[in-house]
């Protein structure tokens, strides 16, 4: 559906998009995820022909956006970051105009407008001036414009920004519905939104694609090792022999901050085998007492933070990364 090849966009000397290569398959919902300034909007603007790339190519449904813009743009419905609404029009006039731009003519115009109005639930507001509509309804009019004419590819740039929680759930429901018949690409810097709606997540950082996978796949890939976090009262015994348990790949101990006289252990092992029982038995065997034991799972949030935080070296599977992940999941 969409093929982006070696896309680069320079603003002066700043690389907004840096050698980005993406392939989007038909009939799925894709999510662009990244912190502010990661190049999401720029990429979308280039894909829709609003902006030209410094180098690289974009093909939509086989048409190059630069050399065959008309054919390519016919396949696209686009909602930019700020919905492009004419404030002194009513939604009906606005959608009629958008129909004209997309080449929808005659009796189909009414039909299409009614369809998208129903889909986005703006039927009751079709004849009010857009400037009098609330932010949520403006956003919906923008989405209605994007889905007008049943384009194969729908691109939504931060579709839920500024909406109240109820509206957000409604819009998400709408996007899921759209995903059944269309290819949808949406962007967000809110993780829960992406993970709840999208089939595939693409994480961007500084204009580069750092990961592209299903939500499950992403957290699995990141979870190279299972980390077990324990608080143990050693009762005067030495615990270092725990590292000898078969399957353990990492072992670390330090005095506990919360319980005096106790130690905090961090044990890592490969996720294929659950070692919790072995560890527990081994500690009891040594004469120690387990006060707390917790398996640390990386949530998608941790994956996102790790991939996008410029402070990290990118060594995501390293043992140092795990405790920071544990903290965030506790906070969440």
């Amino acid at each position: 559906m969409v093929e982006i090849k070696n896309l680069t966009k320079l603003y002066g000397s700043h690389r907004a998009v840096d050698d980005l290569t993406i392939t989007v398959e038909e009939g799925q919902i894709y999510g662009f995820l990244g912190p502010n300034g990661a190049g999401k909007s720029t990429t979308m603007n280039i894909m829709t022909g609003c902006l030209a790339a410094t180098s690289g190519s974009v093909r939509i449904n086989g048409y190059d956006i630069l050399t065959q813009p008309k054919e390519a743009k016919k396949c696209i419905g686009y909602l930019p970051e700020q919905p492009p609404l004419y404030m002194d029009m009513t939604p009906r006039e606005y959608l009629t105009f958008a129909c004209g731009l997309k080449g929808i003519r005659g009796a189909k115009v009414r039909e299409e407008i009614e369809k998208v109005a129903k889909m986005t639930q703006i039927e009751d507001h079709l004849d009010r001036l857009i400037k009098h509509l609330s932010k949520g309804y403006k956003q919906r009019v923008g989405i209605a414009q994007a889905v007008l004419g049943d384009p194969k590819l729908i691109i939504l740039d931060e579709p839920t920004v500024g909406l109240d929680p109820k509206q957000i759930t409604e819009i998400r429901e709408l996007i899921r519905e759209l995903g059944r018949g269309h290819t949808v690409i949406l962007s967000s810097h809110i993780l829960s939104e992406i993970s709840s709606v999208c089939d595939k997540i693409m994480i961007l950082r500084k204009g580069r694609l750092v990961a592209c996978d299903t939500p499950e796949g992403l957290s699995r890939a990141m979870l190279g090792e299972t980390t077990l976090s324990l608080t143990v009262d050693p009762c005067g015994k030495k615990l270092s022999s725990l590292s000898q348990i078969t399957g353990v790949t990492g072992f670390d101990q330090k005095p506990s901050a919360s319980d005096s006289g106790c130690v905090d252990l961090t044990i890592t092992y490969s996720p294929e085998k659950d070692l919790r029982r072995d560890v527990s038995q081994a500690v009891s065997g040594l004469g120690g007492v387990i006060l707390a034991m917790r398996e640390v799972r990386l949530s998608l949030e941790d994956v996102f933070l790790e991939l996008t935080d410029p402070g990290e070296t990118g060594d995501a599977n390293g043992a140092e990364a795990a405790p920071s992940g544990a903290e965030t999941s506790e906070n969440a």
């Binding site: 813009p69 743009k73 016919k74 930019p80 492009p84 404030m87 958008a98 731009l101 997309k102």
Partner: peptide, 14 residues
């Protein structure tokens, strides 16, 4: 100013 130009430029109109 209203960013409505993005609608025009992303439409199949030259």
């Amino acid at each position: 100013r209203q960013r409505t130009d993005q609608l025009l430029y992303s439409s199949p109109v030259s």
